[in-house]
Amino acid sequence: MVEIALGTALAAIGAGVAIGFAGLGSGLGQGIAAAGSVGAVAEDNDMFARGIIFTALPETQAIYGFLIAILLLVFSGLLGGGEGLPITSGLVAIGVGASIGFAGLGSGMGQGIAAASSVGAVVEDNDMFARGIIFTALPETQAIYGFLIAILLMVFGGILG
């Protein structure tokens, strides 16, 4: 059996939380946006490209979560075979995962709802596309905050560098 330091094991939980919750939010958001888009495409074939754009927007939260999870796995020594993390850094890693995980969950869901509404607005009035994109992009900020704090925690919590 592979010996894993407690700190590294905690970082693994952090990585799981990061991609797990961010992916959940992103998935729900994309599901909501896709359900709205498919209805729009059913009525108007020209909506396909714009529906795809709105449906793709809530993908970013999963990407942030994925990036953070990879960084945690690499710098905790789980991938690449480096030194294991101390327990305190492992606890920081859980904070890192929670930061991007929960921020991504809320942001992804919010963005999905906004995207579904925007698709409805665009299919009703083509001129709403640009404004729909702006409104849909707004809930991205929460994921960016979570991502930034996760990076800062990793840098100053002794995980990165």
């Binding site: 359900a35 709205g36 209805g39």
Partner: peptide, 28 residues
């Protein structure tokens, strides 16, 4: 707990997403 709390509003919204998109296309 988080999943239960966040999924409740989603469950209310979800059944209306497809009909609303279809209806809004017709409204246009």
């Amino acid at each position: 707990v988080v999943v239960i709390i966040v999924s409740r509003p989603i469950l209310d919204i979800y059944p209306y997403l497809l009909p609303n998109a279809k209806v809004r296309a017709r409204k246009g």
